[in-house]
Design a protein around this nucleic acid. Structure first.
Lengths: 111, 111
DNA sequence: ATAATTAGTTACATAAAGTAACTTGTTGAG
DNA sequence: CTCAACAAGTTACTTTATGTAACTAATTAT
């Protein structure tokens, strides 16, 4: 297996965006820099996977890790330019979800 | 774990789009109705997973399965309206990939 | 009958994700 | 100083998803 005729850039982009949790992490960071435990609580990911994904996304230059030598140490994650450039995509997903996904017991959420 | 404060519709949409292979299958079907083996060859998925994903996507009303009683039988998969409505999203991913993903040995692919 | 074709399934190996306990580094209370 | 508290991250282990290849079913041409 593993030999497609697709555009390799497109395949790579899909690989990043559709890696589990990545889209939710990026979406969450759209609302501003956040710490490990804030992201964790917001999207419901485990500590193990969050650390792994944050490292991956940092390696892709999509997020930035900043260490503040306070007490206790504060580590903040934020989107890079490359990360921010995914905002239209995230908004499209949100818009599509609002139009096409029906969840009986839930009203539409704010944009 | 598993208790986020995110919009449930958004979470569900992300779940569908970021399920492995789904985005590639949908993207592939944007160029028209196709048969099982055509999709398989185009994106490099295994038969087992392709069948599974096609069933999932049909259950989500994103693709349509049409049986033509020819010889041998021909089964075509196509996008529903809901499926077609994902086109802007796919184009966003393509555009983002073209702008931000660099793969040294590959030139930009056609849109 | 038999081989060929296509969609789909079964059985099993490998890889990724989920869970929870543990480590590290730091600080402030006692 | 010693110990509890806290945040980030890691380790060890279980469960689930994916990869691979052989197999089944339905159909038709030879």
């Amino acid at each position: 297996m593993e030999d497609s005729s697709l555009c390799p850039r497109f395949e790579k982009a899909v690989g990043i965006i559709s890696q589990r949790w990545n889209a939710l992490i990026i979406y969450q960071l759209l609302s501003g820099p956040q710490r490990n435990h804030e992201i964790k609580d917001a999207i419901g990911i485990s500590g193990r996977l969050l650390s792994e994904r944050l490292k991956d996304l940092e390696a892709e230059d999509i997020i930035h890790r900043e260490v503040y030598a306070e007490t206790p140490v504060r580590i903040e994650y934020s989107l890079t330019d490359k990360g921010h450039s995914l905002k239209p995509l995230m908004k499209d997903i949100k818009a599509w979800a609002d139009e096409w996904i029906d969840i009986p017991t839930h009203k539409q959420c704010k944009s």
